[in-house]
Amino acid sequence: MAEKVMHLMRRGAITCAEDTTIQEVAQIMVVNSIRYCVVINGRNEVQGIISARSILKAYGRNLNATRAKDILLPYTVTITPSSSLNEAVELMSKKRIEHLIVVSDRPGSKAILGLLHAEDIVNRMAMA
């Protein structure tokens, strides 16, 4: 049976609010040793993702005045738990991103279920 995203994804994600300062976002990432932070609004809907690379956009600016919503990557590249792993890998290498947001495949649902990490795929390949 072909492997699906649901077999390898990590449930849950570390999030921050839209108006969190970039200084705080950086602290959240460093303390939790993660390379992304999902940005959500007041109604828990996903707005976008901040990666280590997108924080560089704020380098040199006042980190306490810049907010998460100013630099986030809009929430566009997503995958559902029932998609095949091959599809996810293709999306990751095309867009050159290491984390994919996994969302529910129910229509109209904007809830985030978790994230798929490139390192888990590499782990699976190395141990196979």
Binding site: I22, Q23, A26, Q27, M29, V30, V31, R35, S51, A52, R53, I55, L56, A58, Y59, L63
Partner: peptide
Amino acid sequence: LTSFDIVRFMSRI
């Protein structure tokens, strides 16, 4: 040098 090193520097921890 990784982008995470720069994030760590920016977080000032």
